[in-house]
């Protein structure tokens, strides 16, 4: 399809540019790897004193962390351009360019850029995730792998939705980079188990307002906990594990829908006020 060929053209370009900015790319990669390693170090340091935090062991926490970073990494790679919209494009009066093409502006925005930086997060997270999986002796099987793909897709959808919604704020306020950074950074906090946050309000926030817990924590519950244990989170509804994929799917779809609505309304507003 045309979309694919356009996307490949942009990707090819990015890799060519990469060759030019080799050092920059390597530094970026290194920097992100170090940050991953840092959190690993933190957990390691903590676990030199305790065997488990709450009900979570070291390997389980690693798995959660690895998965969270995996989704974050992939999102970073393909969905980086939206940051420019929030910080820069609208404020500098460059957004109109997307409106004069016979193409969906959002699609064009996503295709234009892929971020090679994100590979730093990707590599680190893959290492951590598969190491933890191995140490836990977690065997996925065909069904597990499918489920993993589903969670992966939902996770990406949630990231996409959150970034889109915050970026769209720029249609009203000219620039929304700072708020978007904070909304995005909320994802850091879903690297850790939900039960760590003893406050109901916080748990609610990460599940239903900026649902990053739904990206990583709940999917990992599916693999790491049995049904009786799930009752703690879902109450009576946890009679079967498949509740989690349903829940994840619903949250993802809802947020995606809402964010697309905000985006579209934002463009309308942009066209009315011209910013």
């Amino acid at each position: 399809m045309r979309t694919l060929s356009i996307y490949l053209a942009f990707v090819k370009q990015q890799f060519q540019a990469l060759m030019e900015y080799r050092m920059d790319f390597l530094l970026g990669l290194l920097g992100l790897l170090v940050q991953q390693f840092a959190t690993f170090l933190l957990m390691f340091a903590v676990f030199t004193q305790v065997k488990a935090v709450g009900t979570w062991t070291f390997e389980e926490m690693l798995l959660l962390f690895g998965w969270a970073q995996l989704v974050r990494g992939i999102d970073h790679i393909y969905n980086d351009n939206i940051w420019f919209i929030a910080w820069y494009s609208i404020r500098e009066g460059k957004f109109y360019q997307y409106l004069i093409r016979p193409w969906n502006p959002l699609s064009l925005i996503v295709m234009e850029r892929i971020s090679i930086d994100g590979f730093g997060e990707l590599i680190g997270s893959l290492i951590i995730f598969f190491y933890a999986k191995h140490r836990l002796g977690l065997a996925l099987g065909f069904e597990g792998a499918l489920m993993m793909l589903w969670f992966f897709a939902c996770g990406l959808a949630i990231y996409f939705a959150v970034k889109l919604a915050f970026a769209a704020i720029a249609f009203w306020t000219t620039t929304s980079g700072e708020i978007m950074s904070f909304g995005y950074e909320a994802n850091n906090f879903a690297r850790y188990p939900l039960d760590l946050y003893k406050n109901r309000a916080v748990q609610f926030f990460i599940t239903f307002v900026l649902p990053f817990a739904v990206v990583s924590f709940f999917p990992m519950l599916y693999f790491l906990r049995t049904e009786p244990q799930l009752i703690r989170y879902f109450g009576f509804a946890a009679f079967h594990k498949w509740w989690i994929p349903v829940f994840t799917g619903v949250v993802a779809a809802a947020f995606l829908g809402i964010s697309l609505l905000i985006w579209r309304t934002g463009i309308r507003n942009f066209q009315a006020t011209g910013t």
Binding site: S5, I6, Q13, A17, Q97, R101, E112
Partner: peptide, 27 residues
């Protein structure tokens, strides 16, 4: 549409690439 002093082409792409992408966008 052409706006003076502001290019609508992609900053990092060579002209040849920009044009070929436009070809696909405009079909």
């Amino acid at each position: 549409v052409v706006f003076g002093q502001r290019t609508q082409l992609w900053w990092d792409l060579p002209l040849s690439e920009s044009f070929s992408i436009l070809r696909r966008i405009y079909d």
